[in-house]
């Protein structure tokens, strides 16, 4: 009901600490449906952590995340009897099926074929049968140009190909939001273009996306909004146009360093 009118994703005062160190200071953020948000910033600025908080792969320490009208809070620490955490965990699992994620290190499953990599989520979280899941998997692989490698194992693939498989694996679940965590940083330079093209097509197709990236050209071309993060917080955000003349000294210094670095 109201879900369709409000933002798809909202972060309210989300923080993340690892022991004593704070990697994410209280952060507010809204992402609209169909919006493409690119997050830039130096390494260690908390970009990846921000992304991992969204789908609770690294659960936030405090704060609230509202996704598609549903509220999610940090899970309680059931240190003594972990089984008590299962209902909460199940709810988060359902959240994750609606949020696709692509990683810097691909994280494809080496013991499964390309097709099985994509079919696994379809079978286990969407409840498809083996035949239907396999067919859907090949279809999804076709969209990223990997259909003919369906029977191969990941170790026979190049980095770019692995990343395409990872993208197909995420898209197969028809997520409402896609998270890209430096998806091209581990690729050889000549393979970056192909993966970026897939991401461009996805954005053009109306997918809501949060993209952590070092590819400034891509961010400037594709993003509806650019966010600059540094030292665990959002320093500045705006349209790519606005980022051509940034307000903050830190943003200017960062953009200068990557343009001439």
């Amino acid at each position: 009901m109201s879900a369709s009118t409000s933002s798809l994703l909202e972060l309210r005062q989300v923080t993340k600490q690892f022991g004593e160190t704070t990697v994410l200071h209280p952060t507010d953020l809204q992402v609209e449906r169909g919006e493409v948000v690119c997050v830039i910033g130096p390494s260690g600025s908390g970009k990846s952590t921000l992304l991992r908080c969204v789908n609770f792969i690294a659960p936030p320490t405090t704060g609230t995340i509202v996704f598609d009208g549903e509220e999610y809070r940090p899970p309680k620490d059931h240190r003594w009897i972990p089984a008590l955490g299962i209902p909460e965990e199940q709810r988060l699992t359902r959240l994750r099926t609606q949020v696709g994620m692509v990683f810097q290190q691909f994280n494809v499953f080496p013991h499964l074929t390309v097709r099985e990599n994509v079919a696994l989520g379809l079978r286990k979280t969407c409840g498809l049968g083996k035949k239907a899941a396999d067919a859907r998997a090949v279809e999804e692989l076709g969209k990223v140009g990997m259909a003919e490698k369906a029977a191969a194992y990941p170790e026979q693939l190049s980095g770019g190909q692995k990343q395409r498989v990872a993208i197909a694996r995420a898209l197969a679940l028809e997520p409402k939001l896609m998270l890209f965590d430096e998806a091209t940083s581990a690729l050889d330079p000549e393979l970056v273009g192909g993966v970026l093209q897939i991401m461009r097509d996805l954005a053009a197709g109306g997918m809501t996306m949060m993209v952590v990236t070092h590819e400034m050209r891509f961010a400037m071309d594709v993003a509806d909004r650019v966010i600059f993060m540094d030292r665990g917080g959002i320093v500045e955000q705006g349209t790519p146009e606005q980022f051509k003349s940034p307000q903050h000294e830190r943003t200017r210094a960062f953009l200068k360093s990557i343009n001439h670095g």
Partner: peptide
């Protein structure tokens, strides 16, 4: 690698799965 766990979580597999 810990990325395997993350990859599995990201496609909505439960802990046991």
């Amino acid at each position: 690698p810990s990325g395997q766990r993350e990859g599995a979580a990201a496609i909505g597999l439960s802990r046991w799965q």
